[in-house]
Amino acid sequence: MKNLFYLVAFALPLTGLAQYTDVINSNRPGLSVSAYAVGTNVIQMEAGLFYEQSDHELLNTESDIWGTDISLRYGLLFEQLELNYEGSYQNQNISLIGTDVSENLTDFSRNRIGLKYLIYDRYKSEERSKPNLYSWRANNVFQLKNLIPSVSIYGGATFNMGDNPFYVGDPAVSYRGMVATQSKLTPRFVLITNIAYDRISTDFPELSYLVSLSHAFGNPKWSAFLENQGIQSDRYSDVLLRGGVAHLLTDDLQVDLNLGASFKNTPTRIFVTAGASYRFDLHVDKIKAIDEQSADANGGAIKKNAMKKKDRKENKE
């Protein structure tokens, strides 16, 4: 989906044991979450502005919705672990069609924090990450084994700030669990799936899925995605489809645009989102750090031996 700059997904098999990549790994555009973390000591912000037109046939209402969404991600302790916050704050103006009656609602439609941990890395094995030097087809054409995904698990909490008009009656804190998978189908196609159970402990728990297919173009700075989302709850159920593009401006900055719509008329939803992702890259590769420490130690030993030789020479003179 939540998409990433999908170019990163194609580079992931080359990173071995590390989650960190040289190019920003964003979950935008879309809402799906990749299986991989951003890398230790990487601080990443992903934000966007959205507009939605929503018409409800049974209630005879129409709504204009404006809002902003933000995700803050941090690579915590080790490569497989990520701490993240996701929030959406919106203003919804609801009008009764054919009358002057209207209502304005403003609050968080999404406000949660959690931890994601990679429990299985499909490309952890160096042998599995290597290209087949004898077969172009093996490296570039879809094979059934490519469906085997990397898998991460997520646990977190959703917060209601005061009397939230979008979630009337919900407690201040509820809980969320998710499984995220990521498969590299070909060098240009990546499949991501999310299955989540949200608002656990409320009267209206929500089960949802996200399936996202991304494609990198010949120019690797451009990618596109198509995403399907399903939501099942006694409060609200729907099936949504969205698609969009992302463009890499620098190794640390990506911009994106996506459009989407629902499949039913209670309500009918049409929406557009534009956003960007930026990372503060404080990552230090462990292997590189060890090599530098070793080089410093060897350099110190060489310098020390040279001083000893100089002292012996001076003593002889």
Rank of each mutant, 00 (worst) to 15 (best):
M1P: 01
N3L: 08
L4Y: 07
F5R: 03
L7S: 13
A9L: 11
A9I: 04
L14S: 11
T15V: 11
Y20V: 06
Y20K: 15
Y20M: 09
D22G: 13
I24W: 09
S26V: 11
P29I: 05
V33L: 10
A35H: 02
Q44W: 10
Q44F: 12
E46T: 03
F50Y: 09
S54L: 08
S54Q: 15
D55F: 02
H56F: 11
E57G: 09
S71H: 10
G75W: 02
G75P: 08
L81A: 10
L83F: 13
Y89L: 10
Q90C: 00
N91M: 11
T99F: 13
D100R: 11
E103S: 14
E103K: 10
S109R: 11
S109N: 11
N111I: 08
R112K: 10
G114W: 00
Y117I: 00
Y120F: 15
K124F: 10
E126Q: 09
E127S: 13
E127R: 07
R128C: 00
K130A: 14
L133P: 05
R137I: 15
N139S: 00
V141M: 01
P149W: 00
V151M: 02
I153C: 03
I153N: 09
G162Y: 01
N164L: 03
P165Y: 07
D170K: 03
S174Y: 07
Y175P: 03
Y175T: 07
G177T: 08
A180K: 02
L185T: 02
F189W: 12
I195S: 14
D198M: 01
S201I: 04
D203Q: 10
D203P: 05
D203K: 09
F204Q: 15
L207H: 07
L207Y: 14
S208L: 07
S212L: 05
H215Y: 15
F217L: 13
F217M: 08
G218N: 14
N219H: 05
K221R: 02
K221T: 05
W222L: 11
A224E: 02
F225G: 03
F225Y: 08
L226H: 04
L226G: 04
D234S: 09
S237M: 07
V239C: 05
L240D: 06
G243A: 06
G243F: 00
G244A: 06
A246I: 04
L248C: 11
L249T: 00
L249P: 01
L253H: 09
V255K: 03
L257Q: 01
L257V: 14
N258P: 01
A261W: 06
S262N: 07
S262H: 02
K264W: 15
N265M: 12
T266D: 15
P267Y: 06
P267I: 14
P267S: 02
I270H: 12
I270E: 14
I270W: 05
Y278V: 11
F280V: 04
L282Q: 08
H283V: 00
D285G: 08
D285P: 03
D285V: 05
I287R: 15
Q293M: 15
S294C: 03
I302F: 03
A306I: 01
K308S: 07
R312M: 15
E314G: 04
